[in-house]
Write a protein that binds this DNA or RNA. Structure first.
Length: 133
RNA sequence: UCAGGUGGUCGGGCGACCGCGCCAGGUUUUCGAACCUGGGGAGGAAAGUCCGGGCUUCACGGAAACACGGUGCCGGCUAACGGCCGGCGAGGGCGACCUCAGGGAAAGUGCCACAGAAAGCAAACCGCCUCGGAUUUGAUUCGAGGUAAGGGUGAAAGGGUGGGGUAAGAGCCCACCGCGGCGCUGGUAACAGCGCUGGCAUUGUAAACCCCACCGGAAGCAAGACCAGGUAGGAACGACCGUCGAUCCCAGCUGCAAAGCUUUCGAGCCGCGCACGGGAUGCGGCAAGCCCCGUUUUCGGGCCGUCGUUCGGGUAGGUCGCAACGAGGCAGUUGGGUAACCACUGCCCCAGAUGAAUGGUCGCCUCCCCACAAUUCCCCGUUUCGGCGGAGAAGUUUAUGGGGGACAGAACCCGGCUUACAGACCGCCUGACCGG
């Protein structure tokens, strides 16, 4: 079983500074930890299911499916030194499991090959968009 | 059989593979843990967080009062409750049954739109009746008075219905009903029944203020305790206050006196100590600290006041609380009670996570819905009377395919309430129809 992300700061770091890739059934965020090359720790994984997914029962179900999914796909494919965050969507609950596996394999490949992009910076609420110079 | 009422139970089942966290025992151990075996692992509402408790901290002399909030027919049950049970009253339903914040309106204040002549000190718009006058008989009209039976307005017109009575009317009188008072009877009581009596006087509204009775100290497991870490027990300004300076003081009380007592001190406590050049600031010791520095420790050195305003920075990591012998659960042809509930007997120990375990995937079955085919029935056309074609209905049986199975996730723990909920099952009762 992969080690889990547990602190809020680790999740925020992956969201703000990590790479993002999305699929119909889920969203993947990945952050490469700043570690010396000779002491790289194993990959870690965390799960986020917000209220957008549904009530507590729906969120629990989405997170459980993501957890099994992570063991099946990230178990063999995860790279040491990375923090993976799987974000649940509404479709995570009803999408066939085989499709979810394909979704996750695709986004993991995107992240590993560098084709994923960092998150578009969001302006703080209440501020006007910055005008291009 | 149909329609309905009410109480209760359940909330998909089985299997395969792969997993999660907890407890107990065992083995290994590099003391971090790993592995094996066994046990148990979401709900009827775990939800909303609306009441009542346990528990914790704070406050507080017992207590009482004010304010504020809550409750509000009677009796019982309960640890307690705004809960439950049984009664009473009022309203609804043919009925089973359902609903009700259901104390006080002769303590006081307020309010009652619109319509209407008049709305709580009642009231004369139309009408009705009597008397008088005028005009031309019928009749019309003017004036004075009586009248709440009729019309009209309104949610409501100052008891209701009927009779007597009267110029017309009126509780003016009578009967019944309603209402108030008193008495008797039944009931623990709410209340009910009966009798006498009064005279219709007392409009409604208290989820309007209010009055009365009873209840309530506050905040909550991020309570609270311990440990680890930690740059910041932060900063600025102002006031008080202390130091330098300025300045001020070297005293007061008792006593004849000797003397004694009191008075000071920057900050936790204790002790010492000060007078002609001294003091207000001194010296020593002990103790505490989420403080800082040095060098890891022993240790050494430094630091520290109060109040107010403003501005920040960081954090919520671990263990305990906390997984339970408890207002505990299950069972009973047991006993008491109409019941809620209580007693007794037997058995059981029954989730404990913390980015948050209690599951994921697949197959079969089950229940419901839909489509299509076969099946049955009816209608139309045609016929060589065997059928054929078209259109429709039934949903019985069978097969195939597709879809659906609700509301919802423990977070310190109990007792309730409220709200959400596909569907299934059981008991009792009511009404209608049919049969005996």
């Amino acid at each position: 079983m992969l080690p889990r992300l547990k602190k809020r700061g680790e999740f925020v770091r992956a969201t703000n500074s990590g790479l993002h890739a999305s699929a119909p059934g889920l969203v993947l965020q990945a952050y490469k930890r700043d570690e010396p090359a000779d002491s790289v720790t194993p990959a870690r994984v965390g799960f986020t299911t917000s209220k957008k997914v549904g009530n507590a029962v729906a969120r629990n179900r989405a997170r459980r499916r993501l957890r099994v999914l992570a063991e099946a796909v990230l178990g063999p494919k995860a790279r040491p030194g990375l923090d993976y965050v799987l974000v649940g969507r509404t479709a995570t609950i009803d999408r066939p499991f085989a499709d979810l596996i394909l979704d996750l394999e695709r986004v993991v490949d995107q992240v590993h090959s560098g084709r994923a992009k960092p998150r578009r910076p969001r302006r703080p609420r209440g501020q006007a968009p910055a005008k291009p110079a």
